[in-house]
Design a protein around this nucleic acid. Structure first.
Length: 718
RNA sequence: GCGCGAUUAGCUCAGUGGUAGAGCGACCCCUUGACGUGGGGUAGGCCGGGGGUUCAAUCCCCUCAUCGCGCACCA
């Protein structure tokens, strides 16, 4: 057969991939509305929206690869496939990134710029970042429906956010309260428990008495907070202290008058330190809860800038770290210090700014996770998050992650959703004198002033599975594609995101958001280190696509990477799959070189095609069961080491000898090779599509909509 | 402290209740018209230790050790 000129040179992914992607986009097949035939069953994945904080990294590349594999496989299997892409405004992450840049380049803070100017700067940055991300997603070969693209902060999503906020407020699930929160003094905002990163540091533990006359010694690593103490708590069964419980003392501690009551509370560990806990309600989560139980005062002694807000000249206005030294020195001087020891301590820092978290009481908005919801059979939001996993409506892959999930739910506290930043969904609450209005839009009349705060970015992310489909409107999309089939994401955001999507979706629609959660691990460098800017060991997916082709990068990411486990990627590994792309290029050349167009028309069945059918059956089972790491390896292995190394090698003799056997062999090669390309297509879409376009097939479709070569509808209804 | 995972060839990792697998690397051979981005071959593993269940365990159970991760935190 006459050979296509392209095949005479080695495979060139760089030029091919771009052209092929345009071909797919033009075909319209990314959009399920345009798919041929009657397709009844939908298969839906909503893409976890990358943050508009910069560019894509290998983790995104893995996510896109896995989702694209699922979507392409299902599209070829006759499903009405929707893969809906989008991006996340990532409120605090994006704003703090832009703030840092402005600070660095212009020496200005956001307050120097003002709310409107700052927001406009952030929006510009977000737009640029968005454009970059979209082009990168395309380079990876993602067959997602761009006509339905969404953004967590666009108008439609804002309507969804405000609608559900109002609903939760009306149901009493959202409340405004003065409670202790995690305050980030550096970012000047609250953050949720999940945005805290604990760092181990050495610090000093001081054991001392408030005064000479006080009967009990206490231990602390934060003596400066002790000017805010209102009680000393001991365990109810601690005989050492029983006689003191109930007594009250008026003292002066480092120049500040304090009133201490001795109380018994079982939250206190008898064996820790002196077994007595100085209770500082305003600056410790545990102590706040103790104060709740014992009805204690909660004097605040530290302000939003992590400086002392009480005391005389010696303390007032001092940073907490300075105040710590001052109080310690005072204790030594007064001879009150009994012990001073070095201890390891986990210190909470803000994920985005690195600021040391200062627990403070603040007036904020919260979601109550323990309140019964009448229209949900009096279940709590916690219940709604837990149940779909308990009764297997939602399955996590790999399933051992469900244990981690349950563990997290158990420890869940009310979710603080208000943030003192500007970029994000503004809280849909308006105030006028003593009045408060919660609604989807600004109320009529003048003088209404909207709440200054914005919502935690995970609030809008939690709606993602249905806000993207048009909710609160009753759309056709919502009816067709919800609940979605798979949520594919990294295990590190199981709590941040997965749990919150379940919460929001169960609450808003009384449906699960997805049937399966497929978790992937972290992509590490060849030595197993996390890729990071500071280490400079990051691999840029774009460089990879440029150098080796996106197909090669995709294979390197997915072969052998079991769900939920971390993987290592090196350029060597990727290079191997570039070679593989070239291999199948040359296999095609051999096949076309040795067969005629007639061989493409002939049906054939023999031992070899039967053997191959078994392989496809096996691979299909892997695809159905989300074992893409095995499926990809199997087709790779078959093509290279069975088809090329053995079948082609022995074909040389057979074809040379000629006759009937030669013809049958040619038919066999063509038949198997066509199906190899189909099976490989979800993994290496570009090179397979390119080769498909070269094969002499009559009435050819694009490979993207060719039928998967195994009819599992009869064998394995999934 | 509680929980989860890992421990398999030199390296990176799959995998299965029935005499151990891949990729890369190493060594030897092949400069044969699809491809040297190639082909053929060789070496190399008491499948972390100990115990148990079983006719049979790398796989299931218990336990220990080491590493990693998550959560909670001790004030």
């Amino acid at each position: 057969m006459e050979i296509n000129e392209k095949l005479l040179k080695p495979y060139d992914p760089t030029n091919t991939e771009k052209r092929i992607y345009e071909l797919w986009e033009k075909s319209g097949f990314f959009n399920p509305d345009n798919l041929p035939d009657e397709r009844k069953d939908a298969f839906t994945i909503i893409m976890p929206p990358p943050n508009v904080t910069g560019v894509l990294h290998m983790g995104h590349a893995l996510m896109i690869t896995l989702e694209d594999i699922m979507i392409r496989y299902k599209r070829m299997s006759g499903f009405k496939t929707l893969w809906l892409p989008g991006t996340d405004h990532a409120a605090i992450a994006t704003q703090s990134k832009v703030e840092k840049e402005i600070q660095k380049k212009e020496g200005l803070s956001r307050h120097d710029l003002g709310r409107e100017e700052m927001l406009s700067r952030v929006r510009t940055f977000a737009q640029e970042s968005h454009d970059t991300i979209v082009s990168q997603v395309k380079i990876m070969g993602a067959s997602c429906d761009w006509s339905r693209e969404a953004f967590t902060l666009d108008e439609k999503r804002n309507l969804a956010v405000n609608t559900i906020f109002k609903k939760m407020y009306d149901d009493g699930l959202i409340y405004r309260g003065n409670r202790i929160v995690n305050w980030d003094p550096k970012g000047q905002t609250t953050i949720s428990d999940d945005e805290i990163v604990y760092q181990e540091r050495m610090s000093k533990m001081y054991t001392f008495k408030y005064s000479k006359d006080f009967p009990i010694a206490i231990s602390t690593t934060r003596p400066e907070t002790k000017v805010g103490d209102v009680a000393v708590a001991v365990h109810p069964e601690d005989i050492r202290y029983k006689e003191f419980v109930g007594k009250e003392y008026d003292l002066e501690f480092c120049g500040v008058p304090i009133h201490i009551k001795i109380i018994a509370d079982s939250a206190v560990e008898k064996d820790f330190g002196t077994g007595a806990l100085g209770v500082t309600p305003a600056h410790s989560m545990t102590d706040w809860e103790i104060a709740d139980r014992h009805n204690l005062l909660r004097p605040q002694v530290i302000n939003e800038y992590a400086k002392m807000s009480v005391g005389g000249e010696n303390l007032l206005g001092k940073k907490v770290t300075e105040a710590r030294e001052i109080v310690a020195a005072w204790l030594r001087e007064q001879n009150l210090l009994e012990k001073e020891e070095d201890v390891k301590q986990n210190i909470g820092t803000a994920e985005r700014t690195g600021g040391i978290i200062e627990p403070l009481p603040k007036l904020q908005w919260f979601i109550d996770v323990n309140k019964p919801i009448p229209e949900r059979e009096n279940k709590t939001l916690k219940d709604l998050m837990r149940e779909p996993f308990e009764n297997s409506e939602i399955q996590i892959i790999p399933d051992y992650f469900s244990k981690t999930y349950f563990h997290w739910i158990e420890n869940l506290r009310d979710w603080c959703i208000s943030r003192q930043i500007w970029y994000g969904h503004r809280i849909p609450v308006w105030y006028k004198n003593e009045e408060i209005f919660v609604g989807i839009e600004k109320p009529d009349g003048d003088d209404w002033k909207q709440d200054e705060d914005t919502l935690d970015t995970w609030f809008s992310s939690g709606l993602w599975s249905f806000s993207t489909l048009g909710w609160p409107e009753k759309t056709k999309d919502l009816e067709t594609y919800h609940p979605t089939d798979v949520l594919e994401t990294g295990y590190e955001i199981l709590f941040f995101w997965v749990a919150r999507m379940v919460l929001m979706t169960k609450y808003a629609l009384n449906e699960i958001p997805f049937k399966k959660v497929f978790l992937h691990g972290t992509v590490r460098d060849g030595q197993g280190r996390k890729m990071s800017k500071s280490l400079g060991n990051g691999i840029d997916p774009l460089d990879i696509a440029e150098k080796f082709g996106a197909d090669a990068g995709r294979m390197a990411l997915v072969v052998g990477t079991a769900p939920g486990t971390d993987s290592k990627v090196s350029e060597d590994k990727i290079k191997g799959y570039k070679n593989f792309a070239n291999k199948i290029w040359n296999i095609t050349r051999f096949v076309l070189d040795n067969v005629s167009e007639d061989n493409f028309e002939n049906e054939v069945e023999n031992e070899l095609t039967k053997e191959f059918k078994k392989i496809i059956e096996d691979i299909t089972a892997d695809m159905e069961n989300y074992r893409f790491h095995l499926a990809s390896e199997k087709i790779y292995h078959f093509i290279w080491h069975r088809f090329a190394d053995e079948l082609i090698e022995e074909s040389k003799e057979i074809i040379k000898a000629g006759g009937e056997k030669a013809e049958e062999r040619k038919n066999t090669l063509v038949s198997i090779w066509k199906d190899c390309l189909k099976v490989l297509h979800p993994f290496m879409p570009f090179v397979t599509e390119e080769i498909w376009s070269i094969l002499p097939i009559k009435d050819r479709n694009l490979l993207i909509i060719e039928k998967w070569p195994f009819d599992h509808a009869q064998d394995k209804p999934q």
